[in-house]
Design a protein around this nucleic acid. Structure first.
Lengths: 258, 258
DNA sequence: CAGTGGTCTAGACCACGCT
DNA sequence: GCGTGGTCTAGACCACTGT
């Protein structure tokens, strides 16, 4: 890819023109680009050239493609995910005992718009999981698979693991109690410990076939995967892998140095 | 991309086979894959099909391509970038006055292996810059362009901006003083304020042509861009855009909740 | 059904890295 | 100069989405 060419590089010219139209507003967010056939005619190029131009725009995150429908400009603005604030807020609510009062009620109303697919399993820790927990491989874990939806649209997949001997027999181990008011923070609080910190390691990659299906990910869209470790002191009490469409999140971390 | 096909999808078969060879160690990291011509013969497919297979592996981050050389398995392991610890450490060193003593000396030795390209400009703040600083657009900034190298290899590009009326006439405004022992933290400390926090917003995208050239980025490799705001109280004193090859970093954030 | 993109073929010319 | 990948053409058949 890092190679210039003599004069032609027609696919770049096509991509530049389309990019310009999108940025100028001639192709508004969410609307369809001209079809490949139309672009072939308009720019007098072969289909392969048009497709290369579109692939470039996809890789830039400017457009998305759906089979049988067409290629369209990216519709939705990303939502900022302010990790620090979110966790802090959850914790403050838990500590102040706001749960079970207005907080829960408010959340319950909102929940009508939310959906949650859940599946719990008890599994021995894989090598990778054991490393994240800093326990021996084979230690039993409660592995919880979630898919969150908003208004029916799948937004996030996650696998959250807890040490089994910490939760066995408690309400936390019962899938029927999900979604849990106040989230993970509150859930762990109900078991005794108060979270002291969270470590997040974000990375980006192509979605797997499973993720494409579960999150209905359009062509050309990547995912963000966040590996989260929840700490109580120096002990890791939860390990989660959170997967979201990369075009719908905007990460935001605050590092306090006071 | 999210479309299955009848039986063929030969390019997936080719990609699967190559992926298997890489993961099995038959194609060790850093070594070349068979050339496109060889793969055409081996799998009895057209060149376009081979190239689609390789594009898929590139997008997965498994291989990189260099013109005239070939496509090879990803060689280098990413380096973890522990944002929180790094800044904390810098700050502790500044506060304890370790600069100018053994710390500086140690760094100076290491510096023989480092290189730094620098270019300073005084510019009026763009709308985006003004927003990040929370000042009026047009406010004068000192815009500092850096390219960091290790053993000659370019590792990181950054544009760091400071409020001009805060640095004008000070040693900080003189490019000859770069690299500055102790980095940004120490530099700002020399002006008076002690950093109280840092906000980082990481994202991920294809490199621009400039970045491909400056960082010698192979085909198929993305970059991580971090927008960093350095705070003193609620005032933003520095805004930086940091660009690195995505395959060579591994982000790590700690959120303290104590 | 017509129109869309997904996949595939079989050619061609070119710029680049190495030897 | 040879082999590498980068770009381009002009065909073809297919699956999917809509009407």
């Amino acid at each position: 890819m890092p190679t210039p060419h003599p004069q032609p590089r027609r696919y770049r010219q096509v991509a530049d023109e389309l990019r310009h139209r999108i940025e100028a507003g001639a192709i508004p967010p969410g609307s369809l680009l001209p079809s490949e056939a139309t672009l072939m005619a308009e720019f007098s190029v072969a289909r392969g050239t048009v497709r290369e131009a579109l692939a470039l725009l996809r890789s830039e995150g400017l457009v998305m493609t759906e089979v049988g429908r067409g290629t369209y400009a990216r519709p939705i603005a990303p939502v900022r995910r302010v990790a620090s604030e979110r966790y802090r807020k959850e914790l403050d609510q838990v500590r102040s005992g706001e749960l079970g009062t207005s907080f829960t009620a408010d959340q319950r109303i909102e929940w009508s718009a939310y959906g949650l697919d859940k599946a719990f399993r008890e599994v021995p820790a894989s090598r990778a999981q054991a490393e994240l927990f800093a326990v021996e491989p084979g230690t039993m874990l409660l592995e919880r698979h979630f898919v969150f939806r908003t208004h029916g649209e799948p937004q996030q997949m996650s696998i959250s693991c807890l040490l089994l001997d910490m939760v066995a027999g408690t309400p936390v181990a019962d899938p029927d109690n999900e979604p849990w008011p106040g989230g993970n923070t509150s859930q762990l609080y109900s078991l005794g410990p108060t979270i002291t910190g969270i470590r997040e390691r974000p990375r980006w990659r192509m979605p797997t076939a499973d993720e494409v299906e579960a999150l209905r990910i359009p062509g050309g869209v990547h995912v963000i995967v966040i590996t989260r470790q929840t700490y109580v002191g120096d002990r890791v009490v939860e390990v989660a892998e959170i997967v979201r469409r990369a075009d719908l999140v905007d990460l935001d971390y605050w590092i306090d140095l006071t």
